[in-house]
Design a protein around this nucleic acid. Structure first.
Lengths: 149, 149
DNA sequence: CTTTCTGCAAAAGCTTTGCACTCAA
DNA sequence: TTGAGTGCAAAGCTTTTGCAGAAAG
């Protein structure tokens, strides 16, 4: 009897397929970055990933991090979001949820919304091919309301 | 019989109310920037507004543009979005729609979605007070598909 | 008159780019 | 062997900040 493959195993396979199909190279950096991306909590930024890898004693250049994260998006493994700040945030593409962003402090909260993504992606948009969606509700979080009182 | 007030008249009034309620000053720059913001097509960037004002012979500093656009968001007159680029985009807060963004060329297309906004804003989010929403569907536009063939 | 707001320029932060070197195929 | 990929550092953009001067109330 075989074990169920873990998420990271599936994602590694997904990356391998993507690289092969597109005649791209399977470099150790690409797999290492995928590994850390999955390990980090949701909505990580480039710097966060970079620092996490440094701390783990695995050095890659910032340029490679940028390149690889874009590649992982291209492969459909990660989604790229821009929330209140001008710093790109990434998350593993899974689940259907929206993001609550506080306009004051930038705090991000995730709210499950089971049908939202599939509904947005299944609509007809003419010749535009939808890939993933990003829904943000901007407002003020409880903590910041308390502060301004 | 009185004429219906135009949108810009309503918005000027909205700005005046906001400034008075918050004990802020009614400077000519603030009204001039509001004017241009409404005049510009949807999804304008800071630079676009700045240049438009220069062309019109009305000089304001970039810092003032930044400050005022934030103030107009605070007043609920504009909404601020971050699409694929790291350049903030603003639009007059009206209608309920989502945005299709091409991951290749960054083209923005607006699609009406009558109930989306009200649905997102009326949901219960605990102590988070929702103000406005931003829904983006990322994908590849028809033009870019044609190019890569 | 006082304090907020504006203008200017410098600084800061994220991302991209160019080039030499490395290594996957 | 060879060209895609990586590392490093510099450059590029957008946005923020600090301070002196202008002007709203």
């Amino acid at each position: 009897m075989q074990n169920q493959p873990s998420e990271i195993q599936l994602l590694r396979g997904q990356l391998t397929d993507f690289l092969q199909n597109n005649h791209l190279r399977k470099t150790p950096e690409r797999y290492a970055i995928l590994e850390k991306a999955v390990e980090l909590s949701a909505h990580f930024g480039v710097d966060q990933l970079y620092n996490a890898m440094e701390s783990a004693g695995y050095h890659v250049s910032r340029a490679t991090v940028y390149n690889t994260l874009e590649l992982l998006c291209e492969a459909g493994i990660l989604n790229r979001h821009l929330f209140a700040t001008n710093q790109a945030r990434y998350e593993v593409a899974r689940g259907s949820h929206l993001h609550l962003i506080c306009r004051r402090c930038g705090a991000i909260r995730e709210v499950d919304e089971p049908d939202l993504t599939s509904r947005l992606l299944s609509e007809p948009y003419g010749d535009f091919i939808p890939e993933y969606s990003s829904t943000i509700v901007y407002g003020i979080c409880g903590e910041c309301q308390a502060k301004s009182r």
